[in-house]
């Protein structure tokens, strides 16, 4: 992977993958338990790169995209590749604690959460047989993708190129039986995404018919064009906007997907 891509991957790890801990701590019983008694503030900082702050208190876990100016421990990573190696569970030097006293006992819940997150996002095939687990896997995967698209839109050359010929507009994606609704807006050269109902009427509405379709799409086992032809995904409205988003999702996949993980 090229150096620039390591930086982008690092941003994806900190600002798209890590925030999934918030939902994880609400949805997954083990994660909820881990957060229940936890009280920590942990910053992650990459030299000349992005940072993030994870805090847990009163049973609530939060992930912020920047370090709090005071308080908590901060782990320092020497370069993006260093952080990526840790996220990908590769052999790597441990990060350097640079602020606060790192009391590992206090951080133990975080390490447990990180493990549960990884197992949820990159599940072993048999785990998916469990309905509840599969739903959580899908919801978190879509959330990660949703947070990842603005990052690739800003930094990935192929995503940026695709957006140049993508018309502006607001797109909603719905997966009714997962109760997932989110929106992506591409306007004035900026791409934003959020969970929840869109702020105004959408120009494109992408509806994923069922959970199985969502699973196949997340697993990369269903071609989006095929899904449309099969009626498993429906796009109403501005198709070129949905097309542009499809390229972005493909770019996210090229950084965070299983083949990329195996390669890096």
């Amino acid at each position: 992977m090229r150096a620039g891509n390591e930086m982008l991957l690092c941003r994806l790890h900190l600002h798209a993958v890590l925030p999934a801990l918030e939902a994880l701590s609400r949805l997954v019983p083990q994660a909820r338990d881990a957060v229940a008694g936890a009280n920590f503030a942990l910053g992650l900082r990459v030299a000349d790169g992005p940072s993030a702050m994870v805090t847990a208190a009163d049973g609530v876990l939060r992930v912020e995209p920047a370090l709090a100016s005071r308080g908590g421990a901060v782990l320092y990573f020497f370069r993006p590749r260093h952080l990526n190696a840790i996220f990908l569970q590769r052999v790597a030097m441990p990060p350097l604690p640079v602020r606060g006293w790192l009391r590992f006992a206090k951080l133990r819940p975080f390490l447990r959460l990180a493990k549960v997150l990884d197992a949820t996002l990159q599940p072993a095939e048999p785990a998916l047989a469990d309905d509840e687990f599969r739903r959580r896997h899908l919801l978190l995967s879509f959330q990660v993708a949703l947070r990842a698209v603005p990052i690739v839109a800003r930094e990935d050359p192929l995503a940026m190129r695709a957006l140049k010929s993508t018309p502006p507009g607001l797109l909603t994606i719905r997966i009714p039986n997962l109760e997932f609704v989110a929106w992506v807006e591409w306007r004035n050269g900026v791409l934003r995404s959020e969970l929840g109902e869109p702020p105004s009427a959408a120009d494109a509405i992408v509806t994923v018919r069922d959970e199985e379709t969502a699973r196949l799409l997340v697993a990369g086992q269903l071609d989006p064009q095929a899904a449309l032809g099969l009626g498993r995904v429906r796009v109403d409205g501005l198709i070129p906007l949905a097309d542009g988003l499809d390229v972005l999702l493909h770019r996210v996949e090229s950084y965070l997907g299983a083949p990329a993980r195996a390669r890096s």
């Binding site: 071609d223 064009q225 032809g229 198709i239």
Partner: peptide, 10 residues
């Protein structure tokens, strides 16, 4: 994609 190009159902 099943049918590609301009005649794609998509």
């Amino acid at each position: 994609g099943g049918i590609y190009g301009h005649t794609s159902p998509a």
